[in-house]
Simulated assay, not measured.
Amino acid sequence: MKLPSRPALPDLTRLRDRALPASRTERLGPLLFAGGLLAVGVFLLKAKPSFAHVPRAKQFGDLPRRSRLRRAAQTTRDQIEPFAPTNITDQIGRSLILGGVALLATRLLDEMAGRDTD
Protein backbone atom coordinates (compact mmCIF):
# COMPACT_ATOMS: atom_id res chain seq x y z
CA MET A 1 0.00 0.00 0.00
CA LYS A 2 1.47 3.32 -1.05
CA LEU A 3 0.70 6.50 0.90
CA PRO A 4 0.08 9.74 -0.95
CA SER A 5 3.10 11.98 -1.03
CA ARG A 6 3.12 15.22 0.90
CA PRO A 7 4.11 18.53 -0.64
CA ALA A 8 7.67 19.64 0.02
CA LEU A 9 8.30 22.17 2.78
CA PRO A 10 8.87 25.19 0.49
CA ASP A 11 5.49 24.50 -1.17
CA LEU A 12 3.72 24.56 2.21
CA THR A 13 5.44 27.81 3.12
CA ARG A 14 4.41 29.40 -0.17
CA LEU A 15 0.81 28.23 0.28
CA ARG A 16 0.69 29.56 3.83
CA ASP A 17 2.07 32.96 2.78
CA ARG A 18 -0.53 33.27 0.01
CA ALA A 19 -3.47 32.11 2.10
CA LEU A 20 -2.71 33.88 5.39
CA PRO A 21 -1.92 37.58 5.40
CA ALA A 22 0.86 38.80 7.68
CA SER A 23 -0.43 39.62 11.13
CA ARG A 24 -0.65 43.24 12.22
CA THR A 25 2.13 42.66 14.76
CA GLU A 26 4.46 41.29 12.10
CA ARG A 27 3.76 44.27 9.87
CA LEU A 28 3.97 47.00 12.53
CA GLY A 29 6.75 45.49 14.66
CA PRO A 30 9.58 46.71 12.42
CA LEU A 31 8.09 50.24 12.43
CA LEU A 32 8.14 50.31 16.23
CA PHE A 33 11.68 48.93 16.27
CA ALA A 34 12.80 51.59 13.76
CA GLY A 35 11.22 54.27 15.94
CA GLY A 36 13.13 52.93 18.94
CA LEU A 37 16.41 53.02 17.00
CA LEU A 38 15.73 56.60 15.97
CA ALA A 39 14.81 57.66 19.51
CA VAL A 40 17.91 56.11 21.09
CA GLY A 41 20.14 57.53 18.36
CA VAL A 42 18.77 61.06 18.77
CA PHE A 43 19.08 60.77 22.56
CA LEU A 44 22.75 59.77 22.29
CA LEU A 45 23.48 62.66 19.94
CA LYS A 46 21.73 65.22 22.13
CA ALA A 47 22.79 63.97 25.59
CA LYS A 48 26.51 63.43 24.78
CA PRO A 49 27.28 61.37 27.91
CA SER A 50 30.71 62.22 29.33
CA PHE A 51 31.71 58.59 29.95
CA ALA A 52 32.26 58.09 26.21
CA HIS A 53 34.37 61.22 25.69
CA VAL A 54 37.73 60.40 24.12
CA PRO A 55 40.70 62.42 25.40
CA ARG A 56 42.48 64.60 22.88
CA ALA A 57 45.33 63.00 20.97
CA LYS A 58 48.03 65.48 21.95
CA GLN A 59 48.21 64.56 25.64
CA PHE A 60 52.00 64.63 25.80
CA GLY A 61 52.41 67.97 24.05
CA ASP A 62 53.05 69.13 20.54
CA LEU A 63 56.75 70.07 20.65
CA PRO A 64 59.03 68.37 18.09
CA ARG A 65 60.68 65.14 19.21
CA ARG A 66 64.39 64.36 18.86
CA SER A 67 64.25 60.79 17.65
CA ARG A 68 63.15 60.03 14.08
CA LEU A 69 60.82 57.29 15.26
CA ARG A 70 59.06 59.65 17.69
CA ARG A 71 58.81 62.40 15.05
CA ALA A 72 57.30 59.90 12.62
CA ALA A 73 54.84 58.74 15.29
CA GLN A 74 53.90 62.36 16.07
CA THR A 75 53.39 63.21 12.38
CA THR A 76 51.30 60.10 11.81
CA ARG A 77 49.23 60.88 14.93
CA ASP A 78 48.52 64.38 13.65
CA GLN A 79 47.49 63.02 10.25
CA ILE A 80 45.10 60.43 11.71
CA GLU A 81 43.57 62.61 14.45
CA PRO A 82 40.85 64.25 12.27
CA PHE A 83 39.32 60.83 11.60
CA ALA A 84 39.07 59.84 15.27
CA PRO A 85 35.73 60.55 17.00
CA THR A 86 35.71 62.87 20.00
CA ASN A 87 32.69 61.18 21.54
CA ILE A 88 31.99 57.51 20.85
CA THR A 89 28.27 57.91 21.55
CA ASP A 90 28.03 60.37 18.65
CA GLN A 91 29.18 57.63 16.28
CA ILE A 92 26.84 55.07 17.82
CA GLY A 93 23.95 57.56 17.74
CA ARG A 94 24.51 58.31 14.05
CA SER A 95 24.67 54.60 13.25
CA LEU A 96 21.41 53.94 15.10
CA ILE A 97 19.69 56.81 13.30
CA LEU A 98 20.93 55.58 9.93
CA GLY A 99 19.77 52.03 10.68
CA GLY A 100 16.39 53.26 11.93
CA VAL A 101 15.80 55.39 8.84
CA ALA A 102 16.79 52.51 6.55
CA LEU A 103 14.47 50.07 8.37
CA LEU A 104 11.62 52.58 8.38
CA ALA A 105 12.01 53.38 4.68
CA THR A 106 12.23 49.70 3.73
CA ARG A 107 9.14 48.81 5.73
CA LEU A 108 7.09 51.75 4.41
CA LEU A 109 8.09 51.01 0.81
CA ASP A 110 7.17 47.35 1.35
CA GLU A 111 3.73 48.40 2.59
CA MET A 112 3.30 50.68 -0.42
CA ALA A 113 4.30 47.89 -2.80
CA GLY A 114 1.57 45.63 -1.41
CA ARG A 115 1.13 41.86 -1.64
CA ASP A 116 1.66 39.71 -4.70
CA THR A 117 -1.62 39.01 -6.44
CA ASP A 118 -0.70 35.80 -8.28
Rank of each mutant, 00 (worst) to 15 (best):
residue 68 R to Q: 14
residue 21 P to L: 11
residue 106 T to Y: 14
residue 58 K to N: 13
residue 110 D to S: 08
residue 86 T to I: 08
residue 66 R to D: 14
residue 11 D to F: 05
residue 30 P to I: 05
residue 77 R to F: 02
residue 28 L to E: 13
residue 115 R to C: 07
residue 46 K to A: 15
residue 80 I to A: 03
residue 38 L to D: 07
residue 56 R to V: 04
residue 61 G to H: 08
residue 30 P to R: 06
residue 85 P to C: 01
residue 77 R to T: 08
residue 109 L to Y: 09
residue 116 D to W: 07
residue 37 L to G: 00
residue 105 A to S: 13
residue 28 L to K: 00
residue 64 P to M: 13
residue 66 R to H: 15
residue 8 A to K: 00
residue 10 P to Y: 06
residue 81 E to V: 03
residue 16 R to D: 12
residue 75 T to C: 07
residue 22 A to D: 08
residue 42 V to M: 08
residue 84 A to I: 11
residue 74 Q to K: 01
residue 72 A to C: 00
residue 116 D to F: 12
residue 83 F to G: 02
residue 40 V to A: 14
residue 90 D to T: 05
residue 19 A to R: 05
residue 58 K to F: 12
residue 53 H to I: 11
residue 98 L to V: 11
residue 72 A to L: 06
residue 16 R to P: 04
residue 113 A to L: 13
residue 117 T to S: 15
residue 23 S to P: 09
residue 99 G to L: 14
residue 62 D to S: 14
residue 70 R to H: 10
residue 64 P to C: 08
residue 92 I to G: 03
residue 107 R to C: 11
residue 56 R to N: 10
residue 97 I to W: 00
residue 16 R to H: 15
residue 50 S to E: 14
residue 69 L to D: 09
residue 81 E to G: 02
residue 69 L to Q: 12
residue 102 A to Y: 02
residue 71 R to H: 08
residue 15 L to S: 14
residue 59 Q to F: 04
residue 1 M to A: 11
residue 55 P to S: 09
residue 94 R to S: 14
residue 35 G to K: 00
residue 117 T to N: 09
residue 19 A to N: 06
residue 5 S to A: 09
residue 77 R to Y: 02
residue 75 T to H: 07
residue 117 T to A: 15
residue 107 R to Y: 07
residue 33 F to P: 03
residue 101 V to W: 05
residue 11 D to R: 05
residue 53 H to R: 07
residue 15 L to P: 03
residue 78 D to C: 00
residue 83 F to R: 04
residue 80 I to H: 02
residue 32 L to N: 08
residue 75 T to M: 11
residue 6 R to V: 08
residue 67 S to W: 08
residue 2 K to A: 14
residue 109 L to V: 15
residue 29 G to P: 09
residue 19 A to K: 03
residue 45 L to F: 02
residue 76 T to H: 05
residue 43 F to L: 13
residue 62 D to E: 15
residue 30 P to Q: 01
residue 53 H to S: 10
residue 9 L to I: 11
residue 111 E to M: 15
residue 26 E to K: 06
residue 80 I to M: 08
residue 24 R to D: 13
residue 50 S to D: 13
residue 7 P to Y: 01
residue 101 V to M: 04
residue 12 L to M: 15
residue 102 A to C: 06
residue 99 G to S: 07
residue 89 T to A: 05
residue 86 T to D: 15
residue 26 E to Y: 00
residue 73 A to W: 04
residue 95 S to L: 11
residue 99 G to H: 01
residue 93 G to C: 09
residue 60 F to K: 00
residue 107 R to W: 12
residue 29 G to M: 09
residue 2 K to P: 10
residue 54 V to F: 06
residue 42 V to C: 06
residue 87 N to W: 03
residue 51 F to P: 08
